[in-house]
């Protein structure tokens, strides 16, 4: 069983969050400490209430990983966590970035962990042409 350094919520459209979690389990084995919240459909207020309840259940630093920075999941995450410095929201999540959560070493503080993960996410996009790095 593997756990992230802080509780993680995959807050994404449709089946993306569960898909990322399932793919990660196929690579890492059983994972705990990660929850999924589906947004982008239904009433915004209902989704935000569910997110607020999740935050209430997870005091201390937490990571919220969302897909589209301009999407309603990210907007809801930002709106509900407004003013809460121990809630980190990272948009643009993909499988390499999610896996990086489990591959971080110890960090001095939560902002450093956030910065590290964001950098890993940016570096995860690679381009090949004709089978070789472009």
């Amino acid at each position: 069983m593997i756990r992230p350094p802080v509780p993680v919520l995959l807050f994404t459209h449709a089946g993306l969050g569960n898909g990322i979690l399932e793919a990660a389990r196929s690579i890492l084995g059983e994972i705990e400490g990660v929850d999924v919240l589906v947004g982008g459909c239904g009433a915004v207020e209902e989704t935000e209430d569910r997110f607020a309840a999740w935050l209430e259940d997870h005091q201390g630093p937490v990571l919220v990983l969302t897909d589209l920075g301009f999407g309603s999941c990210c907007q809801s995450a930002r709106r509900v966590s407004r003013g809460r410095e121990n809630v980190g929201v990272i948009a643009g999540i993909n499988l390499p970035a999610f896996l990086a959560v489990f591959r971080t070493g110890p960090h001095e503080d939560f902002p450093a962990l956030m910065a590290h993960l964001a950098e890993r996410a940016r570096q995860s996009v690679e381009v090949y042409r004709g089978g070789s790095p472009a």
């Binding site: 459209h13 589209l68 999407g71 309603s72």
Partner: peptide, 11 residues
């Protein structure tokens, strides 16, 4: 649109 600006609108 109750969400105003969001994925469907932008994309």
């Amino acid at each position: 649109d109750g969400r105003l600006v969001h994925g469907q609108v932008v994309v």
